[in-house]
Nucleic acid binder design. Structure first.
Lengths: 210, 210
DNA sequence: ACATATATGTAGCGATCGCTACGGAAAGTC
DNA sequence: GACTTTCCGTAGCGATCGCTACATATATGT
């Protein structure tokens, strides 16, 4: 994600005071990397700071606290890695092709070798301490959004006459979302791309013509 | 510390020395409860000790350390909650009914209201600190065992002529295991039993006759 | 130049972590 | 009884946690 500002890549500041000496977005991406590999709780502020090339006070001044930094990193992750894939599912007119393409893309994302495996939305805030409940809740809401998107797309498939009118769209949407989440666990367990592709194929088979 | 055992439920000891003053298995079950609710890392020794009704030295003398206690608790969990269900899958002669029954049982287990939701094998050791890698690896091996069991059962279904010879048993086994793991996340997210039943139905639909 | 405002690095706060040293208590053995 | 062995509760170890007080550095506004 090159911001591609010829002029200062460091965000311009309009107010008084010493300007920030680091690239906020670059630091955020480094933080994402750490959170992605380790999860919310095991990623320590010290390690985040090292990766971001800053010290704790700068981190807290720029991002609030660990939880806010995490949530902002997750938002960045979603935008960079998933928004396009979800949008494509809505853009593809044929519902079966839409789902097939989505899961093919998902397996590619989840097994990207240059990235930690698994989706940070699914795995990042599991087993967080009780005082970080709000972080877990925020990610849960994001996971639920996936089910909603599947559901809407399937409903449109029924309206468009591409799926049988008696299709249990809620059940299928539930199942697709459940599969997607299970795929993150498999990916973090080191599943191969071929292995996840098999799962993706079975996912699309749920919509097979009868 | 009232032992209050008429007959010693406490394991008999043959050697010299002061006998253990608590019920090891009861303590293990309490530990399981804590680990199940919180996961490995967020469950502190202090909290475990409170739940088990003992002090740290007793815990370490009886169970080794936190990781060993966790793994022993997980073993107990598997035996109590899942062994019977897996065995039933092998015992049922019809492969479709075997899978259907398995997933029906699984939804029941995963949404048991008196138990923490989700499977500790799937969720318990996600996001553990790096120094507990061995715990994560042990649970990963247990998860893989599920895929193996599905695979064996499906292969038998092909041999028995109940499934088409060209069934991609590896793919289906992969998918069933992935679904099962996703169901744990959904359960811990508070999914209703009805919701998971829908997923279970879709799982069995993967084996629908063609 | 001076005041104001924000960011920075150092250094360390209080709290919690997993774990254990220690001395006393409760059993078997003689 | 004394000796040995094991377990008990207390109390606290060193390490790490998220986070911040503080003094200093660097910008703008006038």
């Amino acid at each position: 994600m090159p911001a591609s500002d010829p002029a200062p890549k460091i965000s311009p500041h309009r107010t008084k005071g010493r300007p920030r000496s680091f690239d906020r977005e670059a630091a955020l991406e480094q933080a994402l990397k750490v959170f992605w590999e380790k999860g919310f709780a095991p990623a320590s502020i010290a390690e985040l700071c090292t990766a971001m090339g800053i010290n704790p006070p700068s981190l807290y001044a720029a991002f609030g606290n660990k939880a806010q930094l995490f949530l902002e990193a997750v938002g960045h992750y979603e935008r960079v890695f998933w928004d396009e894939t979800w949008d494509a599912m809505d853009g593809e007119p044929d519902v079966r092709r839409a789902i097939t393409t989505f899961f093919a893309e998902a397996t590619a994302i989840l097994t990207k070798p240059e990235a930690p495996c698994g989706c940070i939305v699914v795995l990042g805030a599991i087993n967080v301490p009780a005082e970080a409940r709000d972080v877990a809740d925020a990610l849960k809401a994001l996971r639920d959004e996936g089910r909603r998107l599947f559901l809407e797309r399937l409903r449109r498939g029924v309206v468009d006459g591409q799926l049988p009118a008696d299709t249990n769209v809620e059940a299928v949407a539930n199942t697709l979302n459940t599969l997607l989440q299970g795929m993150s666990i498999e990916a973090s367990d080191g599943a191969s791309r071929a292995q996840l592709d098999q799962v993706a194929d079975c996912a699309t088979a749920l919509l097979a013509k009868r």
